[in-house]
Amino acid sequence: MTVAVAAELGLCLCHRCHKACDLNASPHTCPRCGAHLHRRKRNAITRTWALMLTALILYIPANVLPIMHTTSFKGDSTATILGSVVTLWRDGAWDIATIIFIASVGVPVTKFLVLGLLLCTVHKGDTRSRRDRTRLYRGLELIGYWSMLDVFVAALLTALVQFGALGTIEPRPGILFFGLVVVLTMLATLSFDPRLIWDTDTHDD
């Protein structure tokens, strides 16, 4: 392409203070803040893969294990994510059911798919629709934390509904795993370097 790449100019952006450093002058450390200089995020693809796979593994117990335990005078009930979605839908609260479904199933699955797609294409050095992929990545960053909705709902309910014999809600391990999934997917997104999408432009691996 016509646009000059920073590497060709011998420039590198400091990760800490975002100063454009001259690699020829100070090859390893930032002259301003002293941080180590890396041309790209370190081990970006490996880290992203690892974190994403971890999230994927943890996503299984997050869905299988119960997330909440409700004790009320009507009886005890333990709910998984999908179970509560189904219950809400049956009870007529289809709007809330939809929100929870999107937050807890739609968003994480989308993240897994998008991250997997990005990683695969970067790994293969695919040059097609790089602009769209960059847009996808930005979207990924945007929706990342909305999955925490579930965790917040569980945390709020646990904190608020403590009426002793009348009713209590306790968290169950599922919500911990789900929170880990959300955090790990966000970390995976962070550790991915979108500039890698464009690296294939000038240097084919």
């Binding site: 011998g10 690699l23 020829n24 090859p27 041309r39 790209r40 370190r42 693809i45 490996t46 240097h203």
Partner: peptide
């Protein structure tokens, strides 16, 4: 999986 570093990088050694 080791393609996080590119050959032309000056910081390759590090």
């Amino acid at each position: 999986m080791t393609n996080g570093t590119t050959p032309q990088s000056p910081a390759e050694a590090d």
